[in-house]
């Protein structure tokens, strides 16, 4: 089916596209280095106060020292553990709840107002209650992460389930399909894209939850380092932890996009 004997025009077109991508990437890197260079320079010539803003070389050294002492990996490990666990709990809990609500219209109607209220509540307000209930350790932080992300998971998946094409449902029914079969053959595979989107949102929310949680309680983790650093006025530490956090969350987001490519194979025909 595929035509591999491209015309010269097409080859030129492809070449141009490749060039454009190259240029964009070069500029991206350029912007990155420009910011760090400018930052370093402004501190060096005294325009910015390095004590308050810190600066790239100092941040790099701080990260390195944290790494050498072994502290960095411990803190990363703890934050990652809290975030991932919070993420997995919210995603599974949210997905299953959404399926149940899709299944039963009555339950859906009963719980609708509760979900709406919970969704609009600023979850961070429940922080103190969570500390009382779960203590001031990892459990409270994971609970925070779950609390912040689970409702969004429920709402986004339920929306996708309910959007399933009515005629496709009719078709399956005419073949004698049970509700369970409709769920497994149509509703679940048909909402793959929404699922991946939910993962992305839930991941972001779980990060917010775990870092917020660490701000409130905790004796370890990247959020803890940030708070601790600001309290003792070690801005190098604050910046270093933030940079690590940035890299970590970026890497995890990337993993989700890999999963997306894996799940949604026939995107290439889109």
């Amino acid at each position: 089916m595929k035509n591999n004997n491209y015309s010269i025009e097409h080859a030129l077109f492809i070449k141009k596209q490749k060039r454009e991508t190259l240029i964009v990437n070069a500029f991206r890197l350029g912007v990155f280095f420009a910011i760090f260079f400018l930052w370093e320079l402004l501190v060096n010539i005294g325009v910015l106060d390095g004590f308050i803003t810190s600066y790239p070389s100092k941040i790099a050294i701080t990260v390195y020292e944290l790494f050498k002492s072994g502290e960095l990996l411990t803190h990363i490990g703890i934050t990652l553990y809290e975030t991932l666990l919070g993420f997995f709990i919210s995603v599974s809990l949210g997905y299953i709840t959404a399926l149940i609500l899709w299944w039963s219209e009555r339950l859906r109607r009963v719980f609708e107002p509760y979900i709406v209220v919970l969704n609009s509540l600023p979850k961070i307000a429940l922080g103190p209650v969570i500390i009382v209930w779960f203590g001031s350790g990892e459990k409270a932080i994971i609970a925070m992460a779950v609390l912040i992300s689970v409702i969004v998971c429920v709402l986004s998946m339920l929306g996708a389930f309910l959007e399933t094409d009515k005629d496709k449902i009719l078709l399956l029914k005419s073949m004698g399909a049970s509700k369970f079969t409709i769920m497994t053959k149509l509703v679940i595979p048909g909402s793959k894209e929404a699922f991946v989107n939910m993962l992305k949102i839930a991941l972001g929310m779980a990060w917010i939850g775990s870092i917020m949680g660490e701000y409130l309680v905790s004796k370890a983790g990247l959020g803890y380092l940030i708070v601790y650093g600001s309290q003792v006025f070690k801005l190098d530490l604050v910046m270093a932890s933030t940079v690590v956090l940035l890299l970590l969350s970026g890497a995890m987001y990337y993993l989700v996009t890999l999963l997306e490519k894996l799940l949604i194979k026939n995107k290439k025909y889109g």
Binding site: D165, D167, K168, L170, L171, K173, S174, M175, G176, L186, P189, G190, K192, N266
Partner: peptide
């Protein structure tokens, strides 16, 4: 009384599952 094997239903759109 209920959908059975003896009848095949074809709808307005093809309703093929894209995945």
């Amino acid at each position: 009384e209920k959908p059975c094997d003896n009848i095949g239903y074809m709808l307005q759109k093809d309703q093929l599952f894209p995945w």
